[in-house]
């Protein structure tokens, strides 16, 4: 399913009654089955954009359009930076959560949850609790939980940012593999340009607050992508190009924060 932001804006009301413009008129179209990364300087409203798409926050202006909606299918599912797993549930029970909430019969949802646990490579860990898993494994549970509900669009909010650098690298390949098998439409927020370039079909570059789309850059590398791509000179040139679009804004944003 494709997803379009049309002049989507978001203002927050401050405690003192003033308003903060988080997003100003976002226009972005994501095609069905496409992997789009959103990068931008810190505080540019990247995560707000995902919360709007997930329907967890109301937009202040404009609209968000989902096309080709299939009956009974949730529009979105979120994967969180901090995993947001339910610590009192096993891996299998965590993955079942979205199905349970939607009233799927127990036997069916367990079968489905097992499939998705296998998809993210956690078979054998079904009865473990999140506290017994490493960070990378926890995030796989987060992905399985989101994918199990068969969302029209998978929204990923800095899913690898809480992981160490090596795990992050391995998880990028993991995400590519999973996406290759599901071909879900993905909207992927990250501050890491290498990650965006490695994973995405296109990169939407946001400006600093109030965020707007500065540029949408197609990623020129063929799939399937392998780790060797990271050592490629063309990859370095491309990421540098994207970085140079953000650099000045990031500097200003950094100064604003102090």
């Amino acid at each position: 399913m494709d997803l379009r932001f049309e002049e989507t804006s978001k203002q927050y009301v401050r405690r003192d009654g003033g308003t903060i413009d988080a997003l100003a008129g976002i226009n972005l179209a994501v095609a069905s089955g496409e992997f789009v990364a959103i990068v931008g300087p810190s505080g540019c409203g990247k995560s707000t954009l995902l919360l709007l798409a997930a329907g967890l926050l109301p937009a202040s202006g404009g609209r968000i359009v989902f096309d080709g909606q299939r009956a009974g299918r949730p529009l979105t599912a979120l994967v969180f930076q901090e995993f947001a797993l339910f610590e009192w549930r096993t891996v299998l029970q965590n993955v079942q959560f979205g199905l349970e909430v939607r009233g799927m019969p127990a036997a069916e949802r367990e079968r489905r949850a097992r499939d998705f646990v296998r998809l993210v490579g956690l078979d054998g860990f079904e009865t473990r609790y999140p506290s017994e898993l490493s960070g990378g494994m926890r995030q796989r549970v987060g992905m399985a939980r989101a994918l199990a509900v068969d969302p029209a669009v998978l929204l990923m909010d800095e899913p690898l940012s809480a992981l160490d650098a090596q795990t992050r690298q391995l998880m990028q390949d993991e995400i590519l593999g999973i996406w290759d098998r599901t071909r879900t439409t993905v909207l992927y927020v990250t501050h890491n340009i290498h990650e965006a370039a490695y994973l995405a079909d296109r990169i939407a570059v946001l400006s600093r607050r109030p965020g707007r789309v500065r540029a949408v850059v197609p990623v020129p590398f063929d799939r399937p992508r392998r780790e060797t791509l990271l050592a490629d000179a063309a990859f370095g040139r491309f990421t540098h190009e994207v970085w140079s679009m953000i650099r000045d804004e990031a500097r200003t944003a950094m100064r604003d924060e102090h």
Binding site: S42, S134, G135, S161, A162, L163, D164, A165, H191, N192, I193, H194, T239, W243, A250
Partner: peptide
Amino acid sequence: TSISREVIT
């Protein structure tokens, strides 16, 4: 080389 935050768990 990008702006990245690493939290080792």
